[in-house]
Computed example of a mutant assay.
Amino acid sequence: MEITGTTQREAWLARLTPPVEQVREDLWSVPVPMPDNPLRYVTSYVFALAGGGLGLVDTGWDSDDAWTSLQAGLAAIGGDVADVRGVLVTHMHGDHNGLSARVRDASGAWVAMHPADAAIVRGMSETDVEQFIRDQTAFMVSLGADEETAASDAPTPERLAGLRKQAVPDRLLEDGELADFPGWSLRALHTPGHTPGHLCFAEERTGLFLSGDHVLPRISPNISAGQRLEEDPLRDYLTSLASVGDRDEPVEVLPAHEWRFRGLGLRTRELTGHHEHRLTELLDAIRAHPRSTPWELAGYLTWSRPWEQYANAMRMFAVTETDAHLRLLASRGLVVGSGGPVPTWTVAVR
C-alpha cells in the first residue's frame, strides 16, 4: 500500500492537524477537528461544481471549533459556506453529519444520505433521550454488564442532545445512483457494516475513490452489533469489503480519516484478514472460557491498550464489536448462545 497523503501522515505523526490541500483540480481536502477523540479530525472533501458553487462530502463534528475550522478551510480555497449547494454524507455518525445542519442553514444546501442511515437520524431526532439511555443500558446488561457499569458507560444526555440536532437529510441516495454534483461523476456505493447505510463514492471521471470510514489506511473501523438481534453487521461489512476490493483499482483512495493512499484491493484484503484473525481469537477464547458473556469475552481479547483502561463509550464499542463477531461465528455454525436475558456462548458440537 502506497501512502499518497504524505503531508497528512507527517502531520499525524507530529500530532498536528494537516493543512488544507488541493487534491485535484477543483477538489480540496479540509480537516475538521473532533473534540476529545483519538482520530483528531475528519476530512471534508470540497468540490467546485460546474456552473458555480461548492459540494461537500462530510462536514465534521458539531462544535464551534469545528465550524470555525470548516469556514476557514473554505475561505482558504476562496470559498464560503454560503457557496455550498449540496452535502453528501458518507454515514450518519456525528463526525460526518454533525455540521450538515449548520451548513444547510447558512447556505440552503441540500443534504443527502443513504435511506438506511437517514432513518436512524430521523429516529434520533424524534427519540426520548432518557428512554434511549435506558434502552442502551438494558442492552449492555443483556451483553453481561452489571447495572451500575452499564449505566456509567451509557451516553450522557448532553452527548445525545448533539445527535438529536443532526441534519435529517432532504435527499436519499441509493446504491449505484449518481450524486448531483455538476461537473463530476460521483457514483454512490452502498457499503454497510460500520453503519447500515454507509456510502462510498467512486468518482468515475478521475478514478478517485472516497471511502468514508469503510476503508481506512491504518485502523479498522468499529463494527458494532445493535439491539436488533437479527442484524449481522460484520457479515455485511465483509461482504461490502469484498465488493469494493473486486472493483478496478482506483487512482487514489480518499478516506475520511488519516491519509490518502493507493492500494484499495490490498487494504480490503488486510481488513478481511484482521477480522478473520479476530474471529479465530474469539473462538479460542470461548473454548478456554465456555459459557461466557460478550462482556466477559471482550476482556479476553487483544485490544490496542490493556482492557483495564477501557471505560465508557470505548468499552461499550469494544463489547458491541465483540458481539458482532459472535453473531458471525453463530451464523457460521461455530458457536451456540444459551438464550435467555443474558446469553452465554459455547463452541458448537460438530
Rank of each mutant, 00 (worst) to 15 (best):
I286E: 01
F317M: 09
A311D: 13
L279A: 15
R267A: 00
V319P: 00
R287E: 13
L266D: 04
S338N: 04
A313L: 12
A324V: 03
P255E: 01
D323L: 06
V253M: 08
R260I: 08
V342I: 10
R267F: 03
H289N: 14
H257A: 11
A311T: 12
A311E: 13
D248C: 05
T344G: 09
P341M: 12
L279Y: 01
A298Y: 04
M314C: 12
T268V: 05
T302N: 09
P250G: 06
T268R: 00
S292W: 02
L264I: 07
R247G: 06
T344W: 08
G340N: 03
A298R: 00
L271N: 00
G265S: 07
T322D: 04
H277L: 13
R269Q: 09
R260P: 00
R327C: 05
G265A: 08
A330N: 02
V342L: 03
R262Q: 15
T346S: 14
G263F: 15
H289G: 07
G333Q: 09
R315E: 10
D284T: 11
D323V: 03
R269S: 10
Y310H: 07
F261I: 11
R315L: 15
M316I: 06
V342E: 01
T322W: 02
L328Y: 01
L334E: 08
P294S: 13
E296A: 15
H274M: 06
G337W: 10
A288M: 09
E252P: 05
E252S: 08
W295I: 05
R305D: 15
E252F: 12
P290F: 03
G273A: 15
R291L: 12
S338D: 05
E276L: 13
V342A: 04
S338W: 08
R332D: 07
